[in-house]
């Protein structure tokens, strides 16, 4: 497969090698009349941070959920490190374990402690021993500033803390890329920054990230590229400076004027 030719817009950080995520003409229909994704193509290089934005219902969340096959799609191909996601022969659990995902509603497992939330998949999927998994979990909890919360249950934590735990849980799998699906949308305003701080730090450390968000400040600060979606299609896929400087499409201009005017 020729990766360079299919993604003319991508400003690759590292031009060499296979992109971490590569989407080619992805289309999805809920019903024959209702199309949610309209031939979306893009790619994310190693270490790149790509922000996906757009009005609600534009298909942003659906698009990133296609990357780890949480959402099926009918047309096109997605490759993660060269492995085809939409191939029946692909070992999906293995592929998914290599991509971290953070959800809008955290989705920590409420019946497990914070520690167990972080170690469950390490042990069951990566087959790590208890000591190794625990050590990894502790290290990551410390990193997101929640060392003292290990024995608690998710319900005892604030939204911001829960989302930081969710990020740590995803990182515990040593993913090659992280997907964020509106990670701050369900948070009280005063908790948004503590989550964004963790994400900024992660981006600066060189994590490959695809982030669906309305936090334009975050996009400006760390994104290499911004993808703007509308009506299921990728309307713009440009370097961050270009997007905020002079978005080419009218729809993106309108979106930005609405979102940045406050």
């Amino acid at each position: 497969m020729n990766t360079a030719a299919t993604t003319p817009n991508s400003a690759a950080k590292q031009s060499s090698g296979v992109p971490v995520i590569e989407m080619i003409g992805v289309s999805k229909w809920y019903t024959p009349e209702f199309q949610v994704l309209d031939s979306c193509s893009t790619s994310v290089q190693k270490g790149e941070v790509v922000v996906v934005c757009g009005p609600s219902g534009s298909g942003k969340s659906t698009l990133i959920k296609c990357v780890n096959a949480l959402e099926p799609f009918q047309q096109g191909d997605i490759f993660v490190e060269g492995v085809k996601v939409n191939d029946r022969a692909t070992d999906l659990p293995k592929l998914r374990s290599r991509i971290g995902m953070v959800f809008q509603n955290f989705e920590l497992f409420p019946h497990l402690t914070i520690m167990e939330n972080l170690t469950l998949a390490q042990r069951k999927v990566l087959k790590r021993g208890k000591d190794e998994a625990d050590a990894k979990a502790r290290k990551l909890l410390q990193r997101v500033g929640l060392s003292d919360q290990a024995p608690k249950y998710p319900g005892q934590l604030s939204g911001g803390q829960q989302q930081r735990v969710a990020i740590a849980r995803a990182l515990a799998m040593d993913p090659v890329a992280m997907l964020f699906d509106e990670p701050t949308s369900a948070l009280d305003p005063e908790m948004v920054s503590e989550v964004l701080d963790v994400m900024v730090e992660l981006a600066r450390e060189g994590m490959t990230m695809m982030v669906v968000t309305h936090e334009m400040g975050f996009a400006r600060k760390v994104a290499d590229r911004v993808i703007f979606m509308d009506l299921g299609a990728i309307v713009e896929d440009v370097p961050t400076e270009d997007f905020f400087g002079s978005p080419r499409s009218e729809r993106a201009q309108l979106f930005l004027s609405k979102i940045l005017s406050h």
């Binding site: 949480l70 998914r96 998949a121 849980r169 799998m173």
Partner: peptide
Amino acid sequence: LPKGQVAAGYALGLS
């Protein structure tokens, strides 16, 4: 149960 719980499990690579 919220659908996201199952999605979160799958996303971590659980079968």
